[in-house]
Design a binder for these strands. Sequence first.
DNA 1: AGCTTATATTAACACTGTCAAGATAACTCA
DNA 2: TGAGTTATCTTGACAGTGTTAATATAAGCT
Lengths: 215, 215
Amino acid sequence: MNREMPKKTISNKSNYHHGDLKSTLVNEATQILKEEGVEGLSLRKLADKIGVSRTAPYHHFKDKNQLLCTIAEQGFVRWQRDAESIFNRDDISAQQKYQLFFHGYIQYAADNPELYDLMFGRTIWKQNSATQALKDIAFPSFQHQVEMTRIWQKQGIMPSNENTLRLSQVTWGTMHGIARLLIDGIYADRTHIYEMCDCAVNLFTRQLSISDEVD
Amino acid sequence: MNREMPKKTISNKSNYHHGDLKSTLVNEATQILKEEGVEGLSLRKLADKIGVSRTAPYHHFKDKNQLLCTIAEQGFVRWQRDAESIFNRDDISAQQKYQLFFHGYIQYAADNPELYDLMFGRTIWKQNSATQALKDIAFPSFQHQVEMTRIWQKQGIMPSNENTLRLSQVTWGTMHGIARLLIDGIYADRTHIYEMCDCAVNLFTRQLSISDEVD
DNA sequence: AGCTTATATTAACACTGTCAAGATAACTCA
DNA sequence: TGAGTTATCTTGACAGTGTTAATATAAGCT
């Protein structure tokens, strides 16, 4: 018909079939997300950017929501790698470890604000629109922190008289809250990340060596 | 022309001019927000519900954003009244006061999830789209809590060695984070509000009477 | 080669926020 | 009172969105 100029360079074959649309969609979408936020990420614009028709994405993702969930999944995987590498260190004290973990979390959020917002924001979680695959990676991520909290309690750097689940919810809530403040720019800004983290860690932990006062 | 059936009952005069559109818009919008969230709140649907043309709202609000900011303002006013009435009580201890304040905050968020999301969420704050009027009420709200924190530190129920601003950011961040967890239904649910609040308050405060250990 | 399936396309629908022009009524001041 | 100004509301239009249906193309399999 009336199609003459090839728009792709990846493959020298015909370009009716893209060949790698699914992962290209995720990658380009991730970049648009980073640069313009969810508001700026439309399927049509995305398709345009890749050089494919508006409805092509629907052969790889049922929904826009499903695309977003896939991107969020990757965000969890990346953060989990970071967290794991902190937990696995054995050259530092438990308290230092928690401090690194706390600060690493906030830093990750501050470095990838739009991604973080997608991972934990209303867009996905509000109407229970999270994919099962996403749930399967997001929930264990929190569960893992509950386990760590239990250990920190046993080690005496966190109050052992508090219920572990509640304590985890509160400490994670604090990280989440601070992250949101930074991202949305409400009552805090990036120049004070370290100080805020230190303050929070001080409140939640007690050095083992100094007093050891357990009631 | 072809307009015959009067749709309004408030006034017996002609209904070309609504007469009280501005406040009606805010009220109806607030209700839609409560029932369907921001996603379900469109200016056209709102206008339809009121019985006015799609563009009528633009004579009272420059933007959809401006309408949202107005609703958020009301949310701040309402919460501030609640908070004030807690601060002004003199029949309870400072610690109990903080506990009530903390729990009241979370309860307010849990009772008005969509409103809370508007007040502190990305929609308004992300692209600096907050009205000056909204800023003028939102920022003092936090400032007020900084002052309270300073007092609580002086009274010895909060650690006095921490920087007041940082401590305020952390404690407020915790409330904000817990509120968000509840609203978005991520890692917590409403049945444990009390326990989570108690846990957080325990972490942030120390009873005066028991040990009084200040380093 | 022929059939099936995956992948891509265009057309269309029902929404959205917002602007421009025009209609109507209220308000103001002689 | 009457004329002119202003506030308010209307229809029409535009550009954008997600998504479905029907169709075209090509790759893979037997």
